[in-house]
Amino acid sequence: MSGLTFVDVCSGAGGLALGLERAGFEPRLLLDEDDDACLTLRTNRPQWNVLQADLMDFDPSEHPHSYDVDLLSAGLPRVKSNATAVRSESGNEERLLKAAVYLAHAIGPRALLVENVPTLAHSDKFRDFREFARAELDHLGYQFSWFVLNAADFGVPQDRQQGLLVAIKKRWFPAFHPPVPTVTDHVSVGEALESSMRSRGWKDAERWAAQATTVAPTLVGGSKNRGGADLGPAGSKRKWEKLGVNAHSLGDEIPGPDFVWAPDLGREGLVRLTVDQTAMLQGFPPDWEITGRKTARYRQIGHASPPPVGEALGRAIAEALRS
């Protein structure tokens, strides 16, 4: 089992797949329904087999190379919604989760990884799904673990908790241990972005970075029906303001030498982040190109699983499968 293989569904911008690639996994198939996300995947990895399709319509029998893989991974979209939206979308959300488990039944991977919001692991909202997954996976011969990781503990400059389900065939599961943090000190927003902020000669970049000493709030991509290129709900915007960032919109370019950072003037005196900078806060490498228009690019980033977390999970699963 030297070369481990995986199928990734709801691949989005490829954050989870990129992390798994770094951990030594080779993709057999990546699936997503979004035009821009599929173009992002093909742009960065032309050799990857990318299928544009809805998970609910995916038939693995039409793609035999998806069988007999070591891992099935699913990074389902994270959407922050108001109460009405939650009521209207909750059914579809659960259908996607169940589809990932049913797909494990169909293709028989040695391991299954499902990533979503932190409440996936413990909230009453997902109790029915956890019970469904327990019964289905136990029947299929898996043991499993529910847990929560914070991307900040893996060098990502963002407070981003992720709810995770890892299921592994009983033969290998005893050797699995959830990944442990890779950093002892969290990377701050200022530390992560100071070099970028200086790149066009902004004179206040160092002063701004010196006060941006905490990790970023969770990036939220929104859905296609609502949510634009801003940095999240009101509570998140207030946290961004404390970091000297205008979170009500994203900038088209990094500040130049003439921009004056003046927090006392309110929103207009704060710096705006670019889409590329939010990708850095999500842990994407600088050479990973996110395609599409500004809002579409930010939506992909906000929904993505940070690659450093995907790598840590991949290494933990690989270690178990190779035991």
Rank of each mutant, 00 (worst) to 15 (best):
E194P: 06
L71G: 02
T84Q: 12
L265Y: 13
G283R: 01
M56T: 12
W288L: 00
E289I: 12
Q300S: 06
E311V: 08
F25M: 01
R78C: 15
E253I: 08
R22D: 11
Q282W: 09
D153C: 05
G75F: 09
L270V: 06
A104N: 03
N44K: 01
L18R: 06
G310C: 06
V50G: 01
V79N: 05
Q158M: 06
H248L: 09
E93R: 12
V271L: 05
D68M: 14
N225G: 15
G228E: 00
E21F: 09
S199A: 11
E289W: 10
A318T: 10
T213R: 14
R110P: 02
E33H: 13
G190Y: 07
S145D: 13
E319W: 11
A74D: 02
P233Y: 03
T218C: 08
L55F: 02
V260D: 13
R45C: 15
V79Q: 11
Q211G: 10
A175D: 14
P286L: 03
T291K: 08
H303W: 10
G201T: 02
R110K: 14
E206A: 13
D36P: 09
Q52K: 11
S123T: 02
D276V: 09
S236R: 08
D264I: 10
Q277D: 04
L140V: 05
M56V: 09
F58H: 00
A318S: 12
T5N: 03
L113S: 08
A262I: 13
Q211M: 15
N44I: 00
G108M: 13
A229P: 06
Y102Q: 11
R299P: 03
E311F: 04
A192I: 05
L71M: 04
T119L: 10
S236W: 10
K125V: 10
L4V: 07
W48M: 01
M197D: 10
G251S: 08
A212I: 00
G221T: 07
V183H: 09
V220R: 03
L313S: 05
D35P: 09
L120Y: 08
S195K: 10
S66A: 02
A296W: 09
C10R: 11
F173Q: 03
A100E: 02
N44Y: 01
R200K: 11
E194G: 04
P308H: 02
D204Y: 07
V9M: 01
M1C: 12
L231D: 06
D185R: 15
T184E: 15
L243R: 02
S236E: 12
Y142C: 04
K239L: 15
A17T: 00
R22K: 14
L273Q: 03
V245K: 07
Y102G: 05
G75L: 06
N92Q: 12
R95K: 14
W172E: 12
V180Q: 15
G14F: 00
L76P: 07
F144T: 07
L51Y: 00
D276C: 07
A85K: 04
V7E: 00
S90H: 10
Y142L: 03
P263S: 05
E319Y: 12
A279N: 08
T84R: 12
